[in-house]
Design a protein around this nucleic acid. Sequence first.
DNA 1: GTTTTGACGGACA
DNA 2: TTGTCCGCCAAAA
Length: 90
Amino acid sequence: MLAVPAGRVVSYGQVADMAGLGRQARFVGRALGMLPAGHSVPWFRVIRNTGQIAFPPGSDTFEQQKALLMNEGVEVINGRVSMKRFRWRP
DNA sequence: GTTTTGACGGACA
DNA sequence: TTGTCCGCCAAAA
């Protein structure tokens, strides 16, 4: 499921692979953008493989996601999530 | 049926 | 680890 633990972020490819889509990460993004307003999917925890948010800095969605991630305890710097914390053990 | 864009991924510097 | 370039897949125009 798209249930990602709080304080943890997953890349689109991760979700795609988990959903069985394979390398269709784009499909995931499209599906998320197609989600209604009352969705129960933590889309804000879904970021790119590079650790950068899939939104241009300054966008409303970007700020929203950034705030949510920071709220979860994820370090968001310069519109980028410190994936060093998700690579190997800290 | 063909072309373009996209909430992307992986490799190289 | 971060930044940049190329390439892959599917949906929309």
